[in-house]
Amino acid sequence: MAHRAWYAARDAVSVSQLHTHTLYVHGHSPAHRLPSHVKVAALLVFLLGVVSTPREAFWAFGAHAAVLAVAARTAQLTAPFMVRRMLVEVPFVLFAAFLPFLGPDPRIEVLGISLSQEGLWGAWSILARATLGTGAAVLLAATTEVPDILTGLSRLRVPAVLVAIAGFMVRYLDVLADELGRMRTAAAVRGFRQRGRGALRALASVAGSLFIRAYERGERIHAAMVVRGYRGVMPQPFASPAVAADWSRGLALPLVGVTVAVLAVLL
């Protein structure tokens, strides 16, 4: 009953307002409903499978891609969407494109260009693993809101301090960005232009005062925590445990990936 009222209230406000980060895609798919720590564990298991697959086993990478495609399908995410989000990996894998040219001998001729055999293998290996890894991460981010990912991490026994630091970072990134924005405006209205050596000095002092402001805010936040009874341990107010069925549903696909990796090593 309470749940129904809650959903009604939730649908009354616009969906974009509700969601805590831009990577999340609103939905009610089985992948969305899975407890977050199961999803985080699934991501980890899948990645372990991908990185331990020998690079010569092309078929195994095909199988990993198929696993990812099934998972994306379950999450009701489309191929164009996935590809668009995965473009984020481009800057990181760019250097892989140089490996065939710079790698050691022996070399082979492809269309009249001499390429390093080892470099080609290296490039393929980086590209394939990074693409699969990015795809899986995009899937997690699209089906899980940031607060849930944080809860998931702490349920997986990631040290509370680390989870708290990650949480504070997410929470205060916008606040700090706003502060930086105001400082830049204040500099601009007094004729500041981002050029020359003077600009560098001004930017350094902006960075310095941003640090001091962040530090002072940290002190105020700590005081606000202490007055509400904080004694060094972050409470986990509403943790609901995952049932066995959640685990088997969530880990089914990643375990296929691990099986593929094991087979690829043995064959």
Partner: peptide, 26 residues
């Protein structure tokens, strides 16, 4: 105590978690 800048006080990821912070500590 309610602080002057609510940003200093609302540090949990969601409103519900934040309101629960105090009682949960007790």
């Amino acid at each position: 105590l309610v602080f002057q800048d609510p940003n200093d006080q609302l540090f949990m990821p969601t409103v519900r978690d934040d309101v629960a912070f105090g009682p949960a500590n007790y």
